[in-house]
Design a protein around this nucleic acid. Sequence first.
DNA 1: CGCTAGTTTGATGGTAATCAACGCCCGTGG
DNA 2: CCACGGGCGTTGATTACCATCAAACTAGCG
Lengths: 248, 248
Amino acid sequence: MTRIATLSETRDNCHNCRLRTLCLPDNLPVEDVGRLAGIVQRRKPVSRGTLLFQAGQRFNSIYAVRTGAVKTTTLMANGDEHISGFHLPGEVIGLDAIVSRDHPSTAVALETASVCEIPYAELENLSDRTPALQHQLMRIMSRELLAEQSTNHLLTRRSAEQRLAVVLLTFSERFASRGLSAQRFRLPMSRLDLGNYLGLVPETMSRTFRRLEEQGLVSIAGKEVEIVDICAMQGLAFGAQGAQAARA
Amino acid sequence: MTRIATLSETRDNCHNCRLRTLCLPDNLPVEDVGRLAGIVQRRKPVSRGTLLFQAGQRFNSIYAVRTGAVKTTTLMANGDEHISGFHLPGEVIGLDAIVSRDHPSTAVALETASVCEIPYAELENLSDRTPALQHQLMRIMSRELLAEQSTNHLLTRRSAEQRLAVVLLTFSERFASRGLSAQRFRLPMSRLDLGNYLGLVPETMSRTFRRLEEQGLVSIAGKEVEIVDICAMQGLAFGAQGAQAARA
DNA sequence: CGCTAGTTTGATGGTAATCAACGCCCGTGG
DNA sequence: CCACGGGCGTTGATTACCATCAAACTAGCG
């Protein structure tokens, strides 16, 4: 069932992409999408564990996830590794490298995944002549900034249960906006990875999953998640105060 | 001693600004700095507590801090307020509003402060015709992204002592790069604000300051800070593991 | 069929939140 | 000038949550 992409298909890259409204081409007029498609390079699928780029590597391109899921990790000054995000199809990664010559983080495929590579020099060059593209880039970076801020809040002021609830609801929404079920989905990462992202050790992850299940909010089977009571989940995630300080 | 800025002085805005290498004009050719200066509006100093913009307000401009210090806060879904950052002269705020029509956060002067207002429509328009400006904008956003990521790590995986050490060292560096002393400085925010930012209650802030002092790392007098042993501070901030999980 | 990474369970302890109360600084108004 | 008040900061006692340690269990995979 392997199909070979023809050249014309490659040119069509973004036009026909189901993810176009989540990705760089969003808000672009048709002719600009064509020009963008001209510099986008589809990469062949890679298997779980493959590095898309590595911290310290020279920054040449940003990447848009096409299929599968990717995590980005950073080696911190003290030597431990921090997962800065999980990325689903349509999301752009590598933006944190623009300011320096090198990638600050490493991107790893969490499952079989494929990406579009966008050489940054060419993207810069193109967006110099394409205001709409430039504006879309700014919007994407602004959105990332906003997401990081809300992650910050989540991590400082919420209990383990709330962190997990928020993250599950976030995945639910992200899957839904990609046309998948908001109720049932499969988490692409291990509990260790999810715990690293949330600032919780695996033992706590396990116990917290169980507590959510006991409360009848979710049903868990390995990496398969079913959100049983979405309202109660939202109540837990966003209602009242965290377990910790929440003074004005 | 009040000086009235003349028109020509206003035009010169960015050229003569001591902060130009930290701010939007950095990396721009002289003629582009002039064009940028043409759309920058100097605002009169405002006193402590003044709101520069408010969450929910229509997004029109970004702002560069010129003097003083500013905090940005966000009202989270659960009703509590989260301080997303403290901003010193040369830093640009409001970038998180680009993606939506409205400001997600509120900016408050922490002390007497003045800002430059940069109408975003004009900035967009100008950067459409000014590649270097666009690239500088991208670099600034990328830098912000990076900063948020490292804050994330700080908040999830480090003890109260380490969080405070990191934040003090960060302020030290930021003051130093503005030509001020790296050893002695005055924190512009209350302990409550700093605690909110770090995810710590005021009681813990107080005790943690005292512990750093007892260890001979710093000397504290109200908001005045002296970093006594910078090496030991760095050791504490970046060395070894945090008090919490740090598994790969 | 065993191996290893990942996950779970239980027992214990430490760090920081919470609760309670007091002292300090500073601006306001009598 | 002094008294008052409130925001801010400090200190102490107690508690809760989550990390840590230890160990068993499961599942994918060569």
